[in-house]
Amino acid sequence: MDSAYVFDSEQATKLLMKNYELVKTSGVSFIDKRIRFLIARLFAGNNEIVQPEKFYEINKEFKRQLGMFTALNGNVRASLVGLLMASDNGKRDSVGQVISNYNTLIEAGFKRTEYTYFAAYLLLESENPTLTAKKAKTIHQLFKKDHPFLTKSEDVTTAVFLANLKEENVEKLAEVTEYYFQEFAAKGFRKNDSLQFLATTGTLLYGEKDSKFIRRVDNVVEELRQKGVKIKPLHYSSIGILAFVMDGRKIDSGLVNLIDDLQNQPGLRFGREFVTALAISLYTEKQSGQMSKEQLEGLMVNVHILIAMEQAAAMSAAAAASAAAASS
């Protein structure tokens, strides 16, 4: 870990905006602006530039393979293309595999929603998608047992992520997740789907009940509040990953500078809540490169994949909000 590392908010902002413009002019139309920014953030977080021609071609391939009658709308399709490209899975066979995984999840009992497509992307990590999908359905049912009114179709993504773990005892996975859920709720976090994802993040990172994670998240929240950052449910998952990545290190002024820089961008006028979520996620991705050897060796799940998952969840929410706005 480089103790002299300083986060450059200006450079991060420029890279994000450059990728945004490339996605915007890629020829893939009718994408919600928030989705474009989330896709741009995937590449900016990796210090990469999106290839607009490839983005267009993979989007076209999804349309070709799925045809007209599908739950996959333009926002979700573009989001999946971004996720595939950012994780070096931007190939034709990856498109076919995502579609195949989607059908596998439907056969396992999940509903036909945009969230199921994001879960299908996560199933790319599985060596046996059919078994993992069945395991995920069992986990989802256990979630529903604990939270019958809270657990909905969007929780398919968290269920699949947990199912990808080597731990076969699904009751243990659900129990550990419930522990984090209740502990964070006791700290004042709102009981909603965002808290469910934060709780899942704890299970994915530690694999067991660990009060250290609770304390670190609590410390990060307090640190951000002292810096004038208001914490909303949209930020929960990013904060959980950030708390792990920072490993007790202090958050430098770069994060607040990034929030301010992004807020001043002409295309980012969605309100501070969305901008803050985007900034925390981007800051976390950059800081993850400074993790210690001990942190990396102890990981149960790849942090970059976890951050991508957090982005998938954010994209799901943004896509759903866009669909709701379009139908109202």
Rank of each mutant, 00 (worst) to 15 (best):
T70N: 15
N101V: 05
R41Y: 11
Y102T: 03
A108T: 11
D32P: 00
I49K: 14
Q11G: 10
E21Q: 12
F7M: 12
R41C: 12
T25F: 12
P52I: 08
E114F: 08
F69N: 15
T104S: 06
I31S: 04
T113H: 04
N59A: 09
N73I: 14
K33Q: 06
F30I: 08
A78Y: 00
N46M: 13
N75Q: 10
S100P: 00
R34Q: 14
R112L: 11
E21S: 08
S79T: 01
K111L: 10
R112S: 15
K91Q: 09
L123D: 11
S3D: 05
N89H: 14
I106C: 10
P52N: 05
I31W: 04
I31G: 01
L84C: 10
T113P: 02
Q11I: 10
S29F: 05
P52Q: 06
L15F: 00
I39D: 14
S29M: 03
V81K: 02
L122K: 03
F110R: 15
N46C: 02
M85I: 15
D93Y: 04
S3V: 04
S26M: 05
K14I: 06
L80H: 02
Q51L: 07
D93A: 04
L84E: 12
G82M: 13
F43A: 06
Y20S: 01
V98D: 04
V95Y: 06
D32V: 00
N101W: 04
F37C: 03
R92S: 11
N75C: 09
K111I: 09
D32G: 02
S94P: 13
F69G: 04
Y121I: 05
I99F: 07
G90N: 09
G90I: 08
Y56F: 13
A120L: 08
D93Q: 13
K33L: 03
S9V: 05
K33T: 04
L105P: 08
I31Y: 03
L42I: 14
V98E: 07
A44H: 04
P52V: 13
L42S: 15
D93L: 01
G96K: 08
R92F: 12
S29N: 05
K33F: 02
L15M: 13
Q97H: 11
Y115C: 01
L66N: 08
A78T: 03
K63E: 14
K18H: 12
R34I: 01
I49P: 00
I49R: 12
R34N: 13
K14R: 14
V23H: 08
A12L: 01
L72P: 02
T113Q: 02
